[in-house]
Write a protein that binds this DNA or RNA. Structure first.
Lengths: 167, 167
DNA sequence: TATTGTTATACTCTATAACTATA
DNA sequence: TATAGTTATAGAGTATAACAATA
């Protein structure tokens, strides 16, 4: 009996090239002097690698910072955490739901106020976060490989001063 | 005849507080040493103001950089522009459609290749971009108000070196 | 066979508004 | 009357996959 032709493997379109910050021959105009664009460029480059290393752990940037803030400030409420990372309360619900489903975070009742929860890491969550932290630390080392420790400190300090004076 | 009670103005919930980068009393753990998070913090603070100043002009960050790249490199194709700003081709279509609908950008036929377009600013687009540029420049001045010119140059140079060595 | 622009589609984020149960 | 968490919903933004016209 005639063998059916297996479907020819479709050529993968859009083999996403890694983002290139300064393409030779392109004139960027004032973009090269705009802090906001320099930040955007650096962020694209950084997030690409963050996703590649941490998505297998189901960790995204907002998840990472949320878990870290819960670890360092046990008992935070959802509203407090939402303000800390700059999202609205309703957006925090799905995030904590996910953490709970993974068994990483507990919603503990708050004594004296039955509306609110205290957020705490479970031991499983703490162990998972430890793995994530070491990967992030490794990424940081790689990212900073072209910076001296003094330059990195300088960069952090300068970033902290950028933006509207009040922030 | 009895006047109908006008609906009592509902209290606005979620009066969005401006993002605060370092909340007193909160422990940020290793987040304070992570370049990626420092960048994220600065970006949130910066984009809030960008939106407030530029959205009335219908300008968003990707629109701004796209228009600027078209101005400085007239004749770019959509695929080239998409790669420059780090989005896929299909995402560029809606962006250019919008520019065309506003009358800011023309799709010129490419001689010798009827598949592609050369993108160019219209005079209306150039004029609009000029206004946007001056507002962005003003924002830059405000954002950099706490940085000396030398510090700003240093920041741009350091941001350029952050990330995977190849980028 | 490859490429340009396009469409269709879906998924993630995140926002607003309204609801509930508490306070 | 206000607040914590929640739900419903909608709008950006951006991704993948497939397609037509063209190379």
């Amino acid at each position: 009996m005639p063998k059916t032709q297996p479907p020819r493997p479709r050529k993968v379109e859009n083999p996403r090239k890694p983002f290139e910050r300064h393409v030779p021959g392109i004139r960027y105009g004032m973009l090269d002097d705009v802090v906001g664009y320099a930040i955007r460029r650096a962020q694209i480059a950084i997030y690409e690698e963050f996703d590649r290393e941490l998505l297998p752990l189901k960790i995204t940037p907002p998840r990472f910072s949320s878990l870290l803030l819960i670890e360092n400030n046990p008992g935070l409420t959802q509203t407090q955490l939402a303000e800390l990372i700059g999202v609205v309360r309703s957006g925090m619900v799905a995030l904590i739901d996910f953490f709970e489903a993974e068994g990483w975070v507990r919603r503990d009742g708050k004594a004296g106020d039955r509306r609110a929860y205290h957020l705490r890491l479970t031991s499983k969550g703490a162990a998972h976060l430890a793995v994530a932290k070491s990967r992030v630390a490794a990424l940081e080392d790689r990212w900073s490989s072209r910076l001296t420790p003094a330059e990195k400190r300088k960069l952090l300090a300068l970033l902290d001063k950028v933006g509207p004076p009040g922030a």
